[in-house]
Amino acid sequence: MSAAAGAVIREARLADLPAIVGLHAADQGFGQGDAWSPEAEADYRRAFQSLADHPDHVLYVAEDAGEVVGSLLLSFMPGLTGRGALHAVLRSVQVRGDQRSRGVGARMVAAAEAEAARRGARVCELMSNAGRTDAHRFYERLGYAKSHAGFKKRLPAAATFVPG
């Protein structure tokens, strides 16, 4: 999608999947327990294909010298507030540890913001783990403001909803 100072930002391909999962697995202290393994491969492939098939999601990677050094998921959500504003949501932003502070993350975010603007989104938002103070400074440098508190609840795998 764009190139500057080494890394190329482009849409992810299936062949990138082990490296993307590896970025998340290496996220010491903040990871989700991700790890590429034969047992998990089918789940990751299914998730990747679901994202690739859905028009409201774009998975980007930053590639430098043939290696995936970053990834970012851009999702779009329609809303009623803001006169029906389309929201762009940055998710799962990861840059390999040895590539941080080199502009890779900023280029990934800029590519995502350009796509969001192209699609007519009026706001770009993200959530970040409360303990990621370095990431918070990074997002603030890019113009993001701490405007909301986020909450998360893990659901049981077999949760069912009965309307009524």
Rank of each mutant, 00 (worst) to 15 (best):
Ser2Asn: 11
Ala3Gly: 12
Ala4His: 06
Val8His: 07
Glu11Asn: 06
Arg13Thr: 08
Leu17His: 10
Ile20Arg: 03
Gly22Val: 04
Gly22Asn: 00
Gly22Ala: 07
Gln28Glu: 15
Phe30Glu: 10
Gln32Ala: 04
Pro38Ser: 13
Pro38Glu: 14
Glu39Gln: 15
Glu39Cys: 00
Asp43His: 13
Ala47Gln: 12
Gln49His: 08
Ser50Asp: 02
Ala52Leu: 10
His54Ile: 03
Asp56Leu: 13
His57Trp: 12
Val58Leu: 13
Val58Pro: 00
Val58Gly: 06
Tyr60Met: 00
Tyr60Pro: 02
Val61Thr: 06
Glu63Phe: 04
Asp64Asn: 07
Ala65Cys: 06
Val68Cys: 03
Val69Lys: 05
Val69Gly: 00
Ser71Gly: 12
Leu73Tyr: 04
Ser75Ile: 02
Ser75His: 03
Met77Asn: 12
Met77His: 15
Gly79His: 14
Leu80Met: 05
Gly82Gln: 13
Gly82Met: 11
Arg83Asp: 13
Gly84Glu: 14
His87Met: 11
Leu90Lys: 06
Arg91Thr: 01
Val95Ile: 04
Gln99Phe: 12
Gln99Met: 07
Ser101Cys: 08
Gly103Phe: 05
Val104Asn: 10
Ala106Thr: 03
Arg107Lys: 13
Met108Leu: 15
Ala111Asn: 08
Ala114Gln: 15
Val123Arg: 15
Val123Tyr: 09
Cys124Pro: 00
Cys124Asp: 01
Met127Ala: 15
Ser128Gly: 05
Ala130Ile: 12
Gly131Ile: 05
Gly131Met: 09
Thr133Arg: 15
Asp134Met: 00
Ala135Trp: 07
His136Met: 09
Phe138Ile: 09
Phe138Asp: 10
Tyr139His: 11
Leu142Cys: 00
Tyr144Ile: 05
His148Leu: 10
Ala149Thr: 05
Phe151Lys: 01
Lys152Gly: 04
Arg154Cys: 02
Arg154Thr: 11
Pro156His: 13
Ala158Tyr: 03
Thr160Met: 03
Gly164Cys: 05
